[in-house]
Write a protein that binds this DNA or RNA. Structure first.
Length: 427
RNA sequence: GUGGCUGUAGCUCAAUUGGUUAGAGCGCCGCACUGUGGCUGCGGAGGUUGCGGGUUCAAUUCCCGUCAGUCACCCCA
């Protein structure tokens, strides 16, 4: 049996790693553009960090074990508890609001599916210390701009936006019991992929009156903001409507649509919740987030309101691939230095090093090789330019500088070789 | 964790009703090509047909198990 990566874990061959780097670069660029600072924490944490606040159901999905010191530990399944601890530890000394982002590798022990592995990288952006809707709009705009930076448009994805307080108000207004509320969450979460009759049946079994079911379903499935103006919802929806207004002002209105069926699995969300989906509905959520005003207090004692999101690299990568937006994964070399004879090798090494000192990516044949083989290799490596050094050139104090794309070649003084190459590459 | 489908070369795939030496394209290496690359031609390496067992004169093909992938559940960073 061959040794291979564990199920749900990935080997990143150079071509794969290029894609990963491409995504990370967009994440860092846009987060930095929004004034966010990068942080990180340990990939391995005490098990209690997650069992204490995330609920017992999540323990089954933790990649946890006992370490050699007898400690119960877990690979991190999410970044937010670590963030909450770090922020709480220095809460008094940090200027608010705090804008932090991280790109942690996260783990879960679960059977894998398309877009869901046992390991992935996730951009986490959190804005801490600002309770108002301005912060919510800011992080949502950040998520949208990450997608735009990768070449995706409003035709490719949408932000589905809601606020937990709206559903709560709906249910409270209709006096649903706690057990019924739980059923509602389940039903609404999978409404789009479930036949209507099945949903209705579930609600009936939970003792929800048909009249209540009609009313709540009707509002929950609304595809417009207008129903939020109803007097019974006005207080609960004021924040969300302001978030929408701000996004419109930023010019990002096209990317946002209402979806009051968004529930989000994590228990700690308290207000705004949102998810990013591909418009064709082929993939699972690309990004999810929302407001969690009590978590930092619960973990670290400091009472700080937060809003943030996580965006994973797996589904995002699938989407970019489907839309033909992946970067070229070919290696790009600036210069290949080729020799005609073994007597040219010393000059070739010296020149290659000068070119590397000038910041160029340079290769040469490590062992003696025919010139045509070297140039073929230069071509295969995607080099823009080749420098050929032979006995005749050396006798004249020259080198030949070739533009591999245009098949042109010109002689340059050996003393000016770096300048000649730089000039060619600048074209 | 439950169920369906699928496992053949590095990749994408062939192989007749079960039939004797498992093929092709791409990629890789070499030669034509001892001071000039993309093309072309020729050659080569690379497989325990995922693994284990069973049926059969004979298994890539049929059956069982197992591992892995995938899809749907459960659930969702």
């Amino acid at each position: 049996m061959q040794l291979q990566a564990l199920p749900g874990f990935r080997d990143f061959f150079p071509a794969d790693h290029t894609i990963r780097t491409h995504i990370f670069a967009a994440w860092r660029t846009v987060a930095t553009r929004y004034g966010f600072e990068e942080y990180d924490g340990p990939p391995l944490e005490p098990l209690e960090l997650y069992t204490a606040k995330s609920g017992e159901e999540i323990v089954g999905q933790l990649y946890s074990f006992e370490d050699k010191g007898g400690r119960q530990v877990s690979l991190r399944p999410e970044m937010t508890p670590t963030l909450a601890r770090m922020v709480a530890a220095r809460a008094n000394g940090l200027r608010k609001p705090i804008r932090w982002f991280s790109i942690p590798q996260l783990f879960r022990y679960e059977r894998q599916q398309r877009g869901r592995l046992r390991e992935h990288f996730q951009l986490n952006c959190d804005l801490i210390g600002e309770p108002g809707p301005g912060a919510d709009a800011e992080v949502i705009a950040l998520a949208i701009d990450v997608m735009r930076a990768l070449g995706l448009t409003a035709g490719d994805f949408k932000v589905r936006l809601s606020d937990r307080r709206i559903l709560e108000a709906l249910l409270r207004h209709r006096q649903q019991s706690d057990a019924q509320v739980a059923v509602w969450h389940q039903v609404l979460d999978k409404l789009a992929r479930t036949p209507d009759a099945v949903s209705r049946q579930k609600l009936r079994e939970a003792g929800v009156a048909d009249a209540d079911a009609d009313a709540i379903m009707g509002l929950a499935q609304a595809k417009a903001w207008e129903p939020l103006a109803a007097p019974s919802l006005a207080a609960a929806s004021a924040s969300l409507l302001e978030v929408v207004r701000l996004l419109n002002v930023m010019g990002l209105g096209d990317y946002v649509e209402p979806d009051f069926t968004i529930v989000r699995g994590l228990a700690y969300y308290t207000g705004t919740v949102f998810e990013l989906f591909d418009t064709r509905g082929e993939l699972r959520a690309i990004c999810g987030g929302g407001r969690y005003d009590s978590l930092v207090g619960a973990i670290g004692g400091a009472d700080l309101p937060c809003v943030g999101f996580g965006m994973g690299d797996v589904v995002l990568g699938e989407l970019l691939k489907d839309r033909g937006l992946l970067p070229s994964t070919d290696a790009r070399l600036d210069v290949f230095v080729a020799t005609v004879s073994e007597q040219d090798r010393a000059d070739a090494l010296a020149l290659a090093h000068e070119l590397r000192d000038a910041g160029l990516s340079v290769e040469y044949a490590l062992a003696p090789q025919a010139l045509n083989k070297q140039l073929k290799h230069a071509d295969a490596r995607g080099a823009r330019c080749a420098v050929v050094i032979g006995p005749d050139d050396r006798a004249r104090g020259e080198v030949q500088v070739k533009d591999l794309a245009s098949h042109t070649q010109l002689a340059a003084k050996r003393t000016d070789a770096v300048g000649a190459v730089a000039a060619l590459l600048a074209r």
